[in-house]
Design a protein around this nucleic acid. Structure first.
Lengths: 211, 211
DNA sequence: GGGAAGAAATGACATTTGTCATATGAAATC
DNA sequence: GATTTCATATGACAAATGTCATTTCTTCCC
């Protein structure tokens, strides 16, 4: 199996090369080249068409994601394994959309040879911590800023009850307030959010607050 | 590394065992036991606490997902690799939520040892085809069956307008009906869905129809 | 102490909403 | 042609909703 390693830091490239090449199994892993920038990664990939491309994300010149995008655009079956130091939602998200075959933290890459082989075999590999984040990343959305709209804690609670379909009377009971007070609070909330009635508030809740 | 294999078909278990054990690298893979049902898988896991548990999904007695659930509930760090013949969205979804560490098609598991080693190392592995489906699976929406609730096309349209926050009068204009008719339709819809008012209908829409 | 500010409540009011009984007309069925 | 069916419409009604002015009470600050 032929691989290429691209990392800003030549020391890292060298370490990875050693780790991979000393893993003796039937099919040895051969590091055919190493690069130190995304631009170089793209060129090397075009020239050598390796089985797997290991690439850092944060690099000068051109980062791993941009490089990966260029490569995959030309060769949609390219097998790219991104190595990264941190676990940035935005990166993971973009990497996923890109169609990268692996996204692993440098910290826990002791088993790197196995990871590379699994990718070579057509699997896709994510570092443990990353998978936990997947669901969040998929349905990501900035959380709604009640503060910015001047919504108080009680009002926020009331909004949630409305979004559960409760009537004013029911809300009043739940919150130990009089129905009249709930009405007033409702009026205030609608005014703050520039809405007309409770139904619009419920819609707003599901569309903006908890999409 | 110690693993357990659970598969309905003893022939498969045996093949997998051979594949794994003949993979000679520094740390040999030892298949400590094989089972043929989910129930057995749970027992074996409790008793032997293997590093990785390979398990089929479709099995008699107790399927791989249920078994996986039981195991992970007791040991959240359990490393379970699900092997499957088909690529069923619903299974993948449940498996993901469960916290399984791998989901690979039996077809393309030539590199199984590498996969198992990657999982042992803390990574998570998905078969190639599966990743392509991830985005869909994550925000998958089981479509709501208007038909089954006896909701007509016009009523459906009205529901969507309510979920946009329109008043009866506005809905009437949009649909070229009288406001009274809209009220009647509303009444009918609320009755069919067993709801009380338009706000509950909006909530229902976002929770059940287009979650 | 004397405000000032804010949360909670009340009452009055217009509007919206949901329900129901009933009417109309057109299409389908017999 | 008569009947049924269905979508649409109307009017009447009670309940829920949203708005507003006002009051009460507490807390906080000078």
């Amino acid at each position: 199996m032929r691989v290429i390693i691209v990392d800003d830091d030549p020391l890292v490239s060298m370490s990875l090369k050693i780790i991979l090449e000393t893993d003796k199994v039937g099919d040895p892993i051969v590091v055919e080249a190493t690069g130190t920038s995304g631009r170089e990664g793209v060129e090397l990939y075009k020239k050598l068409k390796p089985d797997v491309l290991l690439m850092d994300i944060r690099m000068e010149d051109m980062n791993g994601l941009e490089a990966g995008e260029k490569i995959i655009r030309e060769d949609p079956d390219a097998k790219i394994l991104l190595l990264t130091t941190f676990l940035d939602d935005e990166y993971i998200n973009r990497a996923l959309k890109l169609g990268v075959k692996g996204y692993v933290l440098k910290q826990d890459c002791k088993g790197l040879p196995a990871t590379v082989r699994a990718i070579f075999d057509g699997q896709t590999v994510f570092g443990g911590k990353i998978v936990e984040k997947l669901p969040d990343i998929m349905n990501r959305k900035e959380k709604f800023d009640y503060e910015a709209h001047g919504i108080t804690e009680k009002e926020k609670q009331m909004i949630e009850l409305v979004a559960d379909g409760l009537s004013n009377k029911e809300i009043a009971e739940k919150m130990f307030l009089s129905e009249g007070t709930v009405r007033n609070m409702m009026s205030s909330v609608l005014d703050k959010l520039d809405l007309r009635d409770r139904t619009q508030l419920a819609c707003f809740y599901y569309q903006e607050i908890r999409p």
